[in-house]
């Protein structure tokens, strides 16, 4: 069985009945913005919290008055790991490094770290970049700021 992301990395090309659409498609919005080279989060209009990545319900106040907005792609490296045994979709990339970054707004986001391992350290300033070879959320790369 080929598990190389066969079912999931597909995009819906049909017609959505927006008038009767009660779904806040935060992931689709995130994916569209990341195609434009932008990181996004959801801004809660009830309490002003911004959450990255975006979610349909505010984690602070529970409001669904949520708008997906662009956020700054700068932050610092909280933790990281270099992966030597990867899944089939990353088999040709090993070893590769992934890390969790705390953005300037305090939110956190996971991405591939495109920085030599010898230069990695806690709190290293990083900035978001995007891999044209991949689609959707998988595009995120962290580079040295």
């Amino acid at each position: 069985m080929d598990l190389d992301r066969p079912l999931f990395a597909t995009f819906w090309n049909g017609v959505i009945d927006l008038e009767h659409d009660s779904i806040n498609r935060v992931i689709e919005k995130y994916e569209r913005l990341i195609e434009e080279g932008k990181i996004s989060g959801s801004k809660c209009h009830a309490c002003t919290r911004i959450m990255v990545p975006p979610r349909p319900v505010c984690r602070t106040c529970g409001s669904t008055d949520i708008e997906v907005v662009e956020v700054e792609g700068q932050g610092r490296l909280l933790t990281w790991t270099t992966i030597y045994v990867g899944p089939p979709s990353y088999e040709n990339n090993v070893p590769y490094t992934v890390g969790i970054v705390e953005l300037t707004n305090g939110e956190r986001l996971t991405g591939i770290v495109d920085i030599p391992v010898s230069e990695l350290k806690y709190d290293l300033p990083v900035t978001a970049a995007f891999d044209d070879e991949r689609q959707g959320a998988a595009r995120l790369r962290w580079k040295k700021a």
């Binding site: 069985m1 598990l3 992301r5 999931f8 990395a9 992931i27 990545p53 790991t81 992966i83 045994v85 990867g86 899944p87 089939p88 979709s89 990353y90 088999e91 990339n93 590769y96 992934v98 986001l109 996971t110 991405g111 591939i112 991949r134 959707g136 959320a137 998988a138 995120l140």
Partner: peptide, 25 residues
């Protein structure tokens, strides 16, 4: 590699797994 992939499906597919995060990772 396929077991690693199957197990990684227990993490967030969009925001972790698509970026190559495994459970050991």
């Amino acid at each position: 590699a396929h077991v690693t992939e199957a197990l990684s499906m227990c993490a967030d597919d969009v925001f972790e797994v698509s970026l190559g995060v495994t459970f050991p990772g």
